[in-house]
Amino acid sequence: MLIVTTEAISGYTITEVKGPVFGLTVRARGIGKDIVASLKGLVGGEINQYTEMLEDARKQAMDRMVENAHAMGANAIVMMRFDSGEIGQNMSEIVAYGTAVVAEPAEMK
């Protein structure tokens, strides 16, 4: 599936717009990761445990968005974006969203 952050796909013509599509996941931090993060916060630097958790969450949200687009009969997603937010004290929500479309290779001139 083609996924772009732009309105158009270079070399393709959008022949049909299927509609909005999204994938959502919510992740909770574990007590172990919170302890390690607190200690790392005292020293400074990247907190790898949280980085890995958010990378996995983005991938899962994107995979779910692609599944939804396939179910709608799309072969591409344009204007793809991520959004995130906090739920409670230890949960993060990640959503991937865009517009599901049918895109065909443009004719060569």
Score class of each variant (00 low, 15 high):
37 A>L: 01
100 A>P: 01
22 F>Y: 15
48 N>A: 14
100 A>R: 02
109 K>E: 08
16 E>K: 12
53 M>T: 07
54 L>E: 12
29 R>W: 05
70 H>M: 13
19 G>T: 08
14 I>L: 03
53 M>Y: 02
61 A>T: 05
90 N>E: 08
26 V>W: 00
104 E>C: 03
83 D>N: 14
2 L>C: 01
94 I>R: 01
82 F>N: 02
104 E>S: 07
107 E>P: 07
47 I>F: 08
101 V>T: 02
27 R>Y: 13
52 E>H: 08
13 T>S: 14
3 I>Y: 04
67 E>D: 03
104 E>V: 15
25 T>Q: 02
99 T>D: 13
70 H>P: 01
11 G>V: 05
73 G>Y: 12
57 A>M: 00
104 E>W: 03
71 A>N: 11
104 E>H: 08
56 D>Y: 04
93 E>T: 11
56 D>A: 11
14 I>E: 01
36 V>R: 14
75 N>R: 03
29 R>Y: 04
68 N>D: 09
49 Q>T: 13
89 Q>L: 10
74 A>L: 04
55 E>S: 13
33 K>Q: 15
9 I>V: 14
43 V>E: 14
91 M>W: 06
40 K>P: 09
109 K>Q: 13
67 E>A: 11
20 P>Y: 12
69 A>S: 07
23 G>C: 01
43 V>S: 13
32 G>L: 12
53 M>W: 12
89 Q>E: 15
76 A>H: 01
45 G>M: 13
45 G>Y: 06
84 S>R: 12
5 T>Y: 04
98 G>R: 11
36 V>N: 10
41 G>E: 09
89 Q>M: 08
33 K>N: 14
37 A>D: 14
91 M>F: 09
83 D>I: 05
85 G>F: 03
1 M>A: 11
10 S>H: 08
17 V>N: 05
75 N>F: 03
108 M>C: 08
66 V>E: 00
22 F>C: 11
35 I>Y: 04
12 Y>V: 02
29 R>E: 08
21 V>A: 12
35 I>S: 04
91 M>I: 07
28 A>F: 04
22 F>P: 02
85 G>I: 08
80 M>A: 15
73 G>Q: 06
28 A>T: 14
92 S>Y: 10
50 Y>M: 10
99 T>I: 15
73 G>T: 09
30 G>N: 15
15 T>F: 01
65 M>Y: 05
26 V>M: 07
62 M>V: 02
5 T>M: 11
73 G>N: 06
31 I>Y: 12
84 S>D: 14
71 A>S: 11
35 I>D: 08
102 V>H: 00
45 G>V: 06
79 M>T: 10
82 F>D: 09
52 E>P: 00
78 V>F: 06
48 N>L: 10
8 A>K: 13
60 Q>N: 12
108 M>I: 06
70 H>Q: 15
74 A>E: 01
69 A>Y: 07
31 I>P: 11
92 S>K: 03
80 M>N: 02
105 P>I: 05
69 A>I: 09
103 A>R: 01
7 E>G: 03
66 V>T: 00
78 V>G: 04
55 E>T: 10
36 V>Q: 15
97 Y>N: 05
79 M>F: 09
32 G>Y: 10
13 T>E: 14
98 G>K: 06
20 P>M: 10
28 A>Q: 11
64 R>C: 02
86 E>M: 15
94 I>A: 01
75 N>S: 09
86 E>N: 13
86 E>T: 11
85 G>V: 03
64 R>V: 00
53 M>S: 04
